[in-house]
Design a protein around this nucleic acid. Structure first.
Lengths: 237, 237
DNA sequence: CCTATCTGCGTATGCCCTACGCAATTCAGC
DNA sequence: GCTGAATTGCGTAGGGCATACGCAGATAGG
């Protein structure tokens, strides 16, 4: 019943059949998607219009629609392609999941526009699923059941994605406010926001390395998972 | 040096001075923002155009620009207002952070469009900062230093936000693929994605309650934080 | 060779944000 | 009260955007 699937997924999984008659295609889906990713990486998602993409490809805007149903479908193809292959994982679930999560975070830094696109559907693209599969493989030697493994991989994903969403925005673009710490100090007073004011007074936002928040959160999550694994390991302790 | 701040922030913090001359304003920023949130909640962010918003308010589209510099600024105001006041927290850092994170997740479910808007800047809106402050307050009685507290609150935020981003999309909108588990089973074979195929065979995606993934990840993170707190507590153990 | 098929793309539509400027309204100061 | 400055609502218009539709030329199977 492959016929019931949306066209997008058929193309993605190579189920769509290639035409035999007609002229040789000058454009190819791969070239379109690669160029679109290039534009989004360099100039941001807002700069990616069908017109600009066509100009970069040396064709007319409407030519793109022979290969892509609409712009949303193009975005799905881009999301599928941009992450590339997931990394090989070192032995040990903890090192494996840490490597996987760091690689995922690196993808978001390389392609920040992914964070602005919402799938509108749970992941069914091969690109996403290969990452999920690789993440799950980190738990192969653990006593966690399959549901727990999915939950833990997703938790790690949320952490990497969330931190990237804030950090990536901090690095790129024209900063609206140049001195973040200074602006905070100006607004946050002890009687409005006591806990936050204390943290600011402690200099937390002064010279924060952007990586710290991610690594600290990941370490805590891994510790928590370790507790669960130890509790489920029969012999160990 | 408040004058160096962007206009948006001045308005947000009530620093902007009110005009004394000129006609009584028929429109107010509060009414514009509230109506915009209403539209985005009901019909999605894509349905929120300046024209539609004006129609709902009974004014001309260009009238809005007397109160809002542009659409991006409107989105910032909406993001500031929509979350409302953070919840009061129960005693104990663990219950406190759990309550805070669940409330945050509920905000994303009530206003899914927030997940599609990127701030373009670290948070300086009073609405965001009040939530951050409340989250930090959960750690008041713990030996964690201020930097660690911020890191842990952010980690919890990432988790709630990330899970909402996937779940909210799953609940709303017209599902592209009705039978997700069935589609997965069709595509994922053991030789492509071995770990994922095992999970699917285990029935993980068949009848998953959407809350499970969030609560499981949160429990693990809290366990990890507990380890850190215990390690830093002098007397306890 | 004929014909079904496929590609590239020109034209045109409708939506979107918003720059600009005008007219009406209101208040401060005289 | 009068005058001028400030402020509001908004009509017009321009530029960008995605994309429906249909045509011309190229191609390969029969």
């Amino acid at each position: 019943m492959v016929s019931e699937l949306p066209r997008t997924l058929k193309v993605l999984w190579g189920v769509a059949d290639r035409p035999t008659r007609g002229p040789q295609a000058a454009l190819s889906l791969d070239r379109i998607v690669a160029t679109a990713i290039e534009i989004a990486d360099r100039d941001g998602l807002a700069a990616l219009s069908m017109a600009r993409l066509a100009e970069r490809l040396g064709c007319a805007p409407m030519s793109l629609y022979r290969h892509v149903a609409n712009k949303d479908e193009l975005l799905v193809f881009m999301q599928n392609t941009a992450p590339g292959e997931p990394p090989g994982l070192p032995p040990g679930w903890r090192a494996g999941l840490a490597t996987w999560t760091r690689a995922l975070r690196a993808v978001y830094f390389a392609h920040p526009w992914i964070l602005q696109t919402s799938a509108g559907r749970p992941p069914l693209e091969p690109g996403q699923l290969s990452w999920l599969d690789r993440g799950l493989s980190a738990f192969a030697e653990t006593p966690l059941d399959h549901r727990e493994r999915v939950q833990m991989v997703l938790a790690a994903l949320y952490l990497g994605r969330g931190e990237a969403q804030i950090s990536a925005v901090l690095l790129s673009g024209t900063p609206d406010v140049t001195d973040y710490a200074g602006a905070l100090e100006r607004f946050v007073t002890a009687d409005c926001f006591p806990a936050l004011a204390q943290a600011i007074a402690g200099g937390v936002f002064r010279d924060d390395q952007p990586d710290n928040s991610f690594e600290a959160g990941l370490a805590r999550l891994l510790d928590g998972i370790e507790l669960l694994i130890d509790a489920k390991t029969p012999g160990g302790n």
